[in-house]
């Protein structure tokens, strides 16, 4: 059966936003809808318009996929555990007098900026409604950044700071757990 430009355009829009398997499945559904409408009315243009209307718009479908996407769940989990990590590291740095550590101010600023950018990426991921792929890329970026930041902070605390006390040990353990969580989440985010 011949195609229709309206259906092709709708599928192109969905394919640009969604993972390939989801786009392939939607393509089957939309062509099926079109073929049924064409059988009913016999007019390709009317059938295509009716099929697209019946199917729902690309924004609604993309938002529905994103609402339950693995990347959104991971971003929510990381944001929810953020305040706990902040308390743990805040206590560790205060008790270890981190302001006196021989770390250049530019390094501290860079670290703070990278941390804020990572939180912003996670917030943007959970607010993303239009592109599954963009949401996935932002989550992967945030996970990679969090792993790097956790490793850097833990190494600095252990090597530059004084003999680690229990708050530092607790914070480093929490960071290691978050790194494990991020590594475990990466495959589902990449393939989800």
């Amino acid at each position: 059966m011949a195609g229709h430009p309206l259906i092709t355009a709708q599928l192109d829009a969905l394919a640009a936003r969604l993972p390939a398997p989801a786009a392939a499945e939607l393509a089957d559904g939309l062509w099926e809808t079109y073929e049924r409408r064409l059988d009913e009315c016999g007019d390709p243009d009317r059938a295509a318009y009716a099929a697209v209307t019946d199917f729902g718009d690309a924004d609604t479908i993309t938002a529905a996929f994103l609402r339950h996407a693995p990347q959104r769940r991971v971003a929510l989990l990381l944001l929810a555990t953020g305040p706990i990590m902040a308390v743990l590291w805040g206590t560790a740095l205060l008790t270890a007098h981190a302001l006196a550590w021989p770390v250049p101010p530019a390094g501290k600023l860079l670290y703070g900026g990278a941390l804020m950018a990572t939180v912003a990426l996670l917030l943007m991921t959970i607010r993303e409604r239009r592109s599954y792929r963009r949401g996935r890329a932002m989550t992967v970026g945030a996970l990679a950044a969090l792993i790097a930041l956790d490793v850097l902070m833990s190494l600095t605390a252990v090597t530059v700071g004084p003999v680690p006390a229990w708050p530092t040990a607790l914070a480093v353990t929490a960071s290691m757990l978050r790194i494990l969580l991020a590594l475990r989440a990466l495959p589902s985010v990449l393939t989800g």
Binding site: A22, L26, L30, T33, G56, I61, A64, H68
Partner: peptide, 15 residues
């Protein structure tokens, strides 16, 4: 149901 909204729901149930 709008056909397009069935698919995300099926993906969620599969997940």
């Amino acid at each position: 149901l709008p056909t397009g909204t069935v698919y995300p729901a099926l993906h969620r149930l599969e997940g």
